[in-house]
């Protein structure tokens, strides 16, 4: 983990309010793993508004070029300011934060389920697993065709993928979770990695309930410090005794066993 100011190589529009920012950073490329994130100071130097840094999953790492990227949606003031940055500008961030995913490489089959911007951490997971010659099925669900741009990235990997849109404007029509529900018996030996909106993760919990499925959720929470100091990004986790304890998404996560997470 290091505080860095690095150069932006590209801040490409991937869809409506959707951007991929490529950042030159040998340090991140050397030290970051799938599932980790960075926290960006979106306000300008010496300015404290917007106040807090914004956490973003690492979307991709291209070690050979010392470049990593984040995929982000413009949702508020912070991400809006980020979207204005241009090639050659610097970006102030800290990273890598959180824990890298400890892959169970004994398995051969992996199913990744992403909803909306929740696909961001799953792309790097896909790359890591396919580079290990694992069989990866990537199921992505979106409201509409806005995320169609990510298909060009998926095509670069050796993963199988299916894209679902709720309005049917791109890929398959319907919910990604409905596909999982209908086909769960086919995939119950797969290792699952899931990231997306709370409703999607709750639906997956219901589908997995009572089945011996190993599933990891990469969760989001409003965050303040990002380094484990403030207890702001707490999330309820059910421990072995059934008690709910609060864990920090930034320091203890962001990956948890999906069945243990309390989604409010």
């Amino acid at each position: 983990m290091k505080l860095l100011k690095e150069e932006i190589l590209n801040n490409e529009k991937y869809g409506e309010n959707l951007y991929k920012m490529e950042i030159f950073s040998p340090y991140i490329c050397r030290n970051a793993g799938a599932g980790q994130f960075i926290s960006v100071k979106c306000s300008r130097e010496k300015i404290f508004d917007p106040m807090l840094r914004r956490p973003f999953s690492i979307y991709d790492i291209e070690k050979e070029f010392n470049v990593f990227s984040i995929l982000y949606l413009v949702k508020g003031r912070g991400t809006y300011l980020l979207s204005l940055l241009k090639k050659g500008d610097t970006v102030d961030f800290i990273g890598p934060l959180g824990n890298p995913i400890a892959f169970n490489m004994n398995s051969n089959d992996y199913l990744l389920i992403g909803g909306g911007i929740g696909i961001a951490p799953l792309y790097l997971i896909t790359k890591v697993l396919t580079s290990e010659k694992k069989n990866v099925l990537f199921i992505a669900g979106f409201k509409n065709s806005n995320f169609a741009g990510i298909e060009k990235d998926l095509l670069k990997t050796k993963a199988y993928y299916k894209i679902f849109t709720e309005d049917g404007s791109y890929g398959n029509s319907g919910l990604a979770t409905d596909f999982i529900k209908e086909n769960i018996n086919k995939y119950n030996k797969y290792q699952f990695y899931c990231c997306g909106p709370v409703d999607m993760l709750k639906a997956l919990q219901e589908i997995f309930l009572g089945k011996k499925i190993s599933a990891t959720a990469i969760v989001e929470q409003r965050m303040a410090c990002g380094i484990g100091a403030c207890m702001g990004c707490a999330i309820g986790i059910k421990n072995e005794d059934g008690e709910i304890i609060y864990k920090r998404v930034c320091k203890d996560g962001p990956s948890f066993n999906i069945m243990e997470v309390i989604f409010d």
């Binding site: 508004d49 917007p50 106040m51 409003r222 303040a224 990004c233 707490a234 609060y246």
Partner: peptide, 13 residues
């Protein structure tokens, strides 16, 4: 244990 999440919300400044 602390309070139920979410625990953080950013406001103007």
């Amino acid at each position: 244990d602390g309070n139920k999440p979410p625990r953080i919300w950013e406001t103007a400044c």
